[in-house]
Design a protein around this nucleic acid. Structure first.
Lengths: 220, 220
DNA sequence: TCAAAAGTGTTCAGGGTACACCCATGG
DNA sequence: CCATGGGTGTACCCTGAACACTTTTGA
């Protein structure tokens, strides 16, 4: 029973790659580090895994601290365990990614945390191995887009087909054909046409749709 | 600088899901646990991450302990961090999968470790959350098969097309059409036909092929 | 009246799938 | 001589990609 005691213990952290769509571009939420090492450098929002806390719970807690949001979709991206990845101490980190509807944000908490949205193509220098984490999360996201309904996480309940298309385009980083997109999306997902019109995006106005969930289950 | 000290430290482990092909079936290498908790239960080969050891290095070390092999292809599958996943203590585990050529094994080490190959369809009851780990590794493997040349990891340098096909069939769990398979595999990979014949599998004998690596790079 | 986004079908090519017979050899 | 696995090509279908014009309305 003393078997475990012979072994080393490690600090274990979680880092969150928080994605959101803004003005047709994929953004990541970054913070300015307030502590050493790496003070004033841009970094992912992170935290430590505490005594009686699962990895998933730690990730949710960290996300909540930054955004005030609960019940956000999060997926584990991978564990990062190089010995010197954190210059301050040996910390093993498990990365998570979260997908956020850009409009549901708590501006107070954002400024409290020195947080800022940054487009993925304009990523600044990041703290230590965070670039690799972002890279892996991006790969994961791009992969998921074709397989699972993650895109809807970026949107409110009601959305236009053009908004939906621009989510795909932002994530994949390429323009899509409008007619092919609509055909495919309508046969892949059960989208319900409402009789509401969104006039913010165009003069003519676009029909708002709602995703009907299959079999009353949650999405993703 | 005492910032880190306020936080908990955890035991961090690695668990290896070791795949191999045997008699046309996908097998996993399991061991009988020799220590409590879970003594005499089947489990994945695992170990702890030590003080100055990266996650990847720990996984390689554990694999080497069991098989005697170096330079085996390993990929991280994910981190498992439920609080009570290990009934003996709070251990966060990072799972890796490895692909092994079944014939390159060290029988001495295998018996020393009470290790045994088990077909994935006949998996016995496994220690704690190891079933979930195996499940995730299997999903990962099936996904990789269609995308990357992982299949060749299961085979020696020279192989017949029938052997290659049976690797695919074992991993995907379904029969494939011989002609379609050969057509696709020949246009996907650069396979060099040798003038050697393997007569172990049939009376007529089958041509042995070798994979020509693209641009002198390593595979996978 | 014009600029700007919404909305709507058809055609074509390429890839994937289905399918059956002869060959070589050891027992 | 026959059972066993090795080796080979074609026809069809369906999915994915290319492509252009009309509608609505606010400025």
């Amino acid at each position: 029973m003393n078997y475990y005691k012979e072994h080393a213990r490690h600090y274990v952290g979680v880092d969150c790659v928080i994605f959101g769509l803004h003005e047709g571009r994929l953004n990541i939420l970054l913070i300015k580090r307030r502590m050493m090492p790496g003070r004033d450098q841009w970094s992912l929002m992170g935290g430590f895994v505490e005594e009686a806390e699962s990895l998933d719970a730690a990730a949710k807690r960290v996300l909540h601290q930054l955004t005030g949001l609960e019940d956000v979709y999060m997926e584990q991206v991978g564990a990062f365990g190089a010995i010197d990845r954190d210059p301050g101490a040996r910390v093993i980190s498990v990365a998570y990614c979260a997908l956020l509807n850009f409009n549901e944000q708590d501006h107070q908490r954002m400024t409290d945390n020195d947080a800022q949205w940054v487009p993925v193509e304009e990523m600044p220098q990041l703290f230590f191995d965070h670039p690799a984490i972002v890279e892996k999360a991006l790969g994961y996201l791009r992969q998921q887009v074709g397989r699972t309904p993650v895109v809807f996480r970026f949107l409110p309940e009601l959305f236009t087909l053009s908004q939906l298309q621009s989510v795909y385009e932002a994530i994949l980083g390429e323009k899509l054909d409008k007619r092919n997109f609509r055909k495919r999306i309508m046969e892949t997902y059960d989208l319900e046409k409402t009789d509401l019109i969104d006039k913010t995006g165009s003069k003519r106005g676009a029909t708002l749709y709602r995703r009907r969930l299959p079999g009353g289950q949650s999405s993703c």
